[in-house]
Simulated scan of single mutants.
Amino acid sequence: MSNLLVFQSDFGLVDGAVSAMYGVAKSVSLDLQLYDVTHEIPAYNIFEASYRLYQSTSYWPEGTVFVSIVDPGVGSDRLSVVAKTNDNQYIVTPDNGTLTHLAQSVGLSEVREIDEKVNRLPRSYESYTFHGRDVYAYTGARLASNTITFEEVGPKLDVDQIIQLETPQVEIENRVIKGTIDILDVRFGNLWTNINKAYFEQEGIQYGDTLEVSIYDQNRQIYKNVMSFGKSFADTQVGEPLLYVNSLEKIGVALNQGSFADAYHIKTGLHSKIQIRKAAKIVYS
């Protein structure tokens, strides 16, 4: 392992929960280097936890251990696991769908159930609501510090039985590209869709083209406009919308120096749908 331990959660930083996890990790080994993906996952939002791992893990060195706790089922019979990805990263998490995007992108090579008789913070057995501290941070720290091997985490599980969330596929119908708005670039309010740039290439869409964009909440249209497809935000005037390729090579929707999500009250998730097609050319007689 790399001695790198990276945390994410929906705990926020307004109380001592994250600090307690850091303390548990450092109690296992003072040599551990502790970092964060984020602790601002919306409460109980497993889909976003899955997506943020997909967004970040591949940029860390091999052997990095990630601890992800978005766990609305804490204390239930859901499993606690450590997954090894095909990129040789380790994810310590509840088996509740958090591994969805990594399973579908880089793939999981092996998954083990955490044996809590061995890999649980001593004297914590009467606590049932803070597995992030008592099970995940503790197991992650033991793994990252080489106190235990991956095999010592616990029994091997069938990778194909790991819980996965629904992730709709992109469709093309009558030259219209149909996708979903998976998540936000939160700080700036940009929309990140599930539409890979390859779909634009397939439809012959090039930088500078004008496209018609429609956004739906359920089946109710909440936005329709034309905008350009640009390489960067500088390709439009301040306050104008644009389509661009984001850092994950997916299509994004932005408002130059503004929040598209706030301006048009756009939500994310399975029911937030987007349709994109080339705008009809205007011919003047």
Rank of each mutant, 00 (worst) to 15 (best):
V159P: 05
F150M: 04
I195D: 03
D115L: 06
I148W: 01
V14A: 15
E62F: 08
R142D: 05
I114H: 06
S109N: 10
V106C: 13
S56V: 06
T236C: 10
Q257K: 15
G97I: 02
G140R: 00
P122H: 00
Y136S: 01
L121T: 02
D185F: 07
I91K: 03
L4K: 11
A83K: 05
V118M: 11
P241A: 06
P168G: 12
Y54R: 10
G258W: 01
D115H: 03
F150A: 04
A141N: 01
Y90S: 09
Y125I: 11
N96F: 00
M227P: 05
A280M: 14
D217C: 12
E173D: 14
K178Q: 07
E116W: 07
E173H: 14
I183L: 14
D31V: 07
Y51D: 12
N219Y: 03
S105R: 09
Y22V: 12
L143D: 01
E116R: 15
I41W: 01
T193C: 01
V283E: 15
I91T: 05
T268Q: 05
N174W: 03
W192M: 15
V170C: 04
Q202T: 13
Y54C: 11
L242K: 02
F11V: 13
N86R: 13
V37C: 09
G12D: 01
R133T: 07
S109H: 05
D182L: 11
V118L: 12
L102C: 10
S214E: 12
V18W: 00
P42K: 10
Q169A: 15
V70M: 06
G97M: 02
D115S: 09
P122K: 00
E201L: 10
D185Q: 11
V170I: 06
A254N: 03
K231D: 03
T85Y: 02
S259H: 06
A279V: 08
V153E: 00
V70W: 01
T64G: 02
V6A: 09
A261P: 05
I276N: 02
K117W: 04
N246R: 04
W60K: 10
G258R: 04
N219E: 12
Y244P: 12
Q33H: 13
Y51F: 14
S9E: 08
I282L: 14
Q161W: 03
A43Q: 14
S9C: 10
